[in-house]
């Protein structure tokens, strides 16, 4: 009896799962799309982070029917589910496949299918380990450059000594590698002292505990280099608790990444010192690529690196907060 009930529930769950997939990748309508360009967009879960939410909103705002597009969206943080969604889009006969892959590996065969079906593949936000001939363009952030921009800014502060708490993102992610690499290089070349270097896995509360631990140990530090805004916020919460001043002209320099609106507001209020952008607004770049391809040409460059800024609390304006905040 127990097994039977379980079997029924599992079956029901599977059916639900199927409809859920159907919802994520709406079936193509039977022709008659009125000259709309059909695109399938495979993205990571918009709940993942503020970055992803902004990214998803931007894509949705650009690829509308009013702009001449019929867009279908599929979201997953898992590579295999994304590949299944890609196969579905290929069957549906989309004209363009836009892809932000969860994982770099495993995409060769499905992209070959797409090529055989004459579908243009455009990668955004993340690259994959596949032959470049399999995709038309790749629009990415240069994480190494983001790190370098931030580190160069920090060098420019000309502190008498650098004692840095380095809070890392999820180890192995592209953002972590790029943003950590620059600090490690500068620590080696300029003799910066890394007080602690630990991963808080993008988690504010873990960052708070890491900084708390350094404060409890009584080790002096004057820079917090957090690889995203959430972790910087956690670190600042620990500083506030210990009455350590932070921000422009204060004891500790606070650096974050991603340019959340609230983080830029902290910059404007002079509580933080620096925030590096990780540009989520790729849709205009994608639009340019599609226009080029539609006119029968190939994009001039295969890999397009987006402009990304670094904001300094002493120069940021209220307009910047509104324009670049996500």
């Amino acid at each position: 009896m127990k097994k039977k009930v379980l079997a029924v529930v599992m079956a029901a769950a599977m059916v639900l799962g199927l409809t859920a997939c159907g919802g994520a990748a709406p079936a193509a309508d039977g022709g008659g799309d009125g000259g709309l360009i059909k695109i399938g967009i495979i993205n990571n879960d918009p709940n993942e982070s503020g970055y992803r939410t902004a990214n998803d909103k931007d894509l949705k705002a650009t690829f509308t029917e009013a702009n001449g597009f019929q867009a279908s969206f599929a979201y997953s943080l898992k590579n295999d589910e994304q590949i299944t969604a890609a196969q579905k889009f290929i069957q549906d006969g989309v004209d363009y496949l836009l892809l932000s892959a969860a994982d770099t590996a495993g995409w060769d065969s499905v992209l070959k299918d797409a090529q055989a079906a004459g579908i243009h593949v455009i990668l955004f936000d993340r690259t994959i380990d596949a032959d470049p001939s399999l995709y038309s363009a790749s629009i990415v952030s240069d994480m190494d450059k983001e790190g370098e921009t931030a580190v160069n800014w920090l060098k420019g502060q000309n502190l008498s000594e650098y004692n840095i708490i380095h809070i890392q993102g999820v180890m192995g992610s592209a953002a972590q590698k790029g943003r950590s690499g620059a600090v490690d290089a500068a620590a080696a070349s300029d003799g910066w002292n890394i007080v602690t270097q630990q991963t808080a896995e993008w988690n504010a509360e873990k960052a708070q505990q890491i900084v708390q631990s350094v404060i409890d140990a009584g080790t002096p530090f004057n820079v917090i280099y957090a690889e995203n805004d959430d972790m910087a916020k956690g670190a600042v919460a620990a500083l506030d608790k210990a009455n350590i001043s932070h921000g422009v002209g204060k004891d500790v320099i606070v650096m974050g990444f991603d340019c959340n609106k609230w983080a830029l507001q902290e910059l404007l209020d002079q509580n933080w010192n620096y925030d590096g952008q990780c540009n989520p607004f790729q849709s205009q770049y994608i639009l340019d690529v599609i226009k080029t391809l539609e006119s029968g040409q190939e994009p001039a460059q295969k890999t397009i690196i987006m402009d990304e800024k670094g904001f300094d609390a002493t120069t940021i304006t209220a307009d910047d907060v509104n324009n670049y905040g996500i």
Partner: peptide
């Protein structure tokens, strides 16, 4: 307690 610590929430990582 968790949301009060930072007065905000991050859905994907809170209490992970």
């Amino acid at each position: 307690i968790k949301v009060s610590r930072l007065s905000t929430i991050n859905y994907s990582v809170i209490a992970k």
